[in-house]
Each structure stands twice: as structure tokens, then as C-alpha cells.
Amino acid sequence: MPRIACLHTIDSNAAVFDEALRMTGLTGVSLRHTVRADLLASAERQGRLTPEIAAETVAVLRSLFAEADAVLLTCSTLGPAAETAARDAPVPVLRVDAALAAEAVREGGRVAVLCAVETTVEPTRRLFEAAAQATGAQVSVQVVPQAWEAFKAGDLDRYRSLVARAAGIAREAGAMQVALAQASMAGAAALLPEEIRPLTSPAVGLAAAVAAARAT
């Protein structure tokens, strides 16, 4: 039974990933959730992922190695820390948006990537642009206005509605694919028709983590 340790920075993301696991139909998988909201809060205060916050994130990720077959970082703002933690790690360490980026750019064309938090924009841009080099996809990354304020206020319906509307607008503007960079945005996808539904990170990220765990 692959044991996947997830590091979240939002309490509600534990349920998001439990649901993603159920929806993917992956069997025999055990999820363990650790939540460190303070890491994202610190990055928001600093306006970016600082070396100090990254180092603390790496330490937390490494603390999860002992009881896991793979470790999954679910926060896009902290994403680069997973790459550092993965060096010489005894188990695979993945950032949840890496698999999302690979899938989003797979067919090339124009790809719109939506974020809710400003601090997510730069690490997300670097990740998606690196993935796009293999396919020639044209990537644009943007923040959904007012979305994060709605999320922090506990108005999840408005949060998902704003994200879904932005995704629809991006498709109307010519994006071949739309990706929701943050795991907390996943619920917005269901508000759109299936033919224009954006890609979300929980399911593809979990699948990548399980595949990595089973390969070791």
C-alpha cells in the first residue's frame, strides 16, 4: 500500500485530496496529511518565498520521509522547496503542480494558468515555462482578482465562482488549455461545462506521487 504524505498550507486541502483520491479510483493508497498554514502566511507577509521560509519547508518535508513512500507538497507558493528536499531523499518528493504543468502544456498552444495568491505567480510561471520548452506552448500566468480575499473570508462559493468565471474568460480569449495552479481552486472546475473544464492539480498530482512511490 503506497503511503503518500501530503504537506498542505490550507486546512481544507486535506479534504480536497481525500476527495481527489476517491475520484481517481486509485486503490490501496494511504494519505497522511500535515498542515502548516504558517508557512504560506509567512510567504504572504514577505511577498515571496524567502530562503528562510524555503529552508523551513524543506525541513518539514524531510520530517515526513520516515513514514512515507512518497511526499507531496500541495502548496504552489512553496513549490520550489520540494525540488530542494528531493535531493538525496530516500523517497520521491514531488510538488503537486509539476504534473499539472506537464499535462497543461502537452499539446502546445496557448495555456492560461490561473492563481489566487500573488505569491504563487512567480514559482508557477517558472515551472510552467520550463515545462513548455518541450512542447512550444505559450504560457500566461495571472491572478484571479478578489478570489483570495473571498477564500480567506470563508466565502468559498464566491471563490469558486470567481475562479470559474476567469477560466471561462480565458478560454473565450483563445486559450487551448486552462490550468488552476492552486489545489484549493479545484472545486471551481465543476462549475464549468465539461468541454471547457480547466485542469486541476490534486488528481494529477496524486497520480504522479503514487506512480513514483510504486516505482521505487
Results as ranks from 00 to 15, higher is better:
Pro80Ser: 15
Ala82Gln: 02
Ala82Ser: 12
Glu83Asn: 06
Glu83Tyr: 04
Arg87Leu: 10
Asp88Ala: 10
Asp88His: 09
Ala89Asp: 12
Ala89His: 08
Ala89Phe: 12
Val91Ala: 07
Val91Leu: 14
Val91Asn: 11
Arg95His: 14
Arg95Val: 09
Val96Gly: 05
Val96His: 14
Val96Glu: 15
Val96Phe: 15
Asp97Ser: 14
Asp97His: 12
Ala98Met: 11
Ala98Gly: 00
Ala98Ser: 10
Leu100Ala: 07
Leu100Val: 12
Ala102Gly: 06
Glu103Cys: 04
Glu103Leu: 11
Ala104His: 09
Val105Gln: 12
Val105Pro: 09
Val105Thr: 12
Arg106Gln: 10
Arg106Lys: 14
Gly109Lys: 03
Arg110Asp: 15
Arg110Thr: 06
Val111Gln: 02
Val111Tyr: 00
Ala112Trp: 00
Cys115His: 11
Val117Glu: 06
Val117Leu: 13
Thr120Leu: 13
Glu122Phe: 09
Glu122His: 07
Pro123Gln: 08
Pro123Gly: 05
Arg125Leu: 09
Leu127Pro: 01
Leu127Lys: 04
Ala130Phe: 04
Ala130Met: 01
Ala131Val: 01
Ala132Gln: 04
Ala132Phe: 00
Ala134Tyr: 07
Ala134Thr: 12
Ala134Ser: 10
Thr135His: 05
Ala137Gly: 04
Val139Asn: 02
Val141Met: 06
Gln142Asp: 04
Gln142Glu: 14
Gln142Cys: 05
Gln142Asn: 03
Val143Tyr: 03
Val143Glu: 09
Val143Ile: 14
Gln146Ala: 09
Gln146Ile: 00
Gln146Arg: 13
Trp148Tyr: 04
Trp148Asn: 06
Glu149Met: 02
Glu149Tyr: 04
Ala153Asp: 09
Asp155Lys: 11
Leu156Ile: 15
Leu156Thr: 14
Asp157Thr: 10
Arg158Lys: 07
Arg160Lys: 15
Arg160Glu: 15
Arg160Ala: 09
Ser161Val: 02
Ser161Ile: 02
Leu162Cys: 07
Ala164Thr: 03
Ala167Lys: 00
Gly168Asn: 02
Ala170Glu: 01
Arg171Tyr: 03
Arg171Cys: 02
Arg171Phe: 00
Met176Leu: 15
Val178Asn: 05
Ala181Thr: 11
Ser184Val: 10
Ser184Ala: 09
Ala186Trp: 11
Gly187Cys: 07
Ala188Gln: 09
Leu191Lys: 06
Leu191Asn: 05
Leu191Arg: 11
Leu192Gln: 10
Pro193Glu: 12
Glu195Pro: 00
Ile196Gln: 05
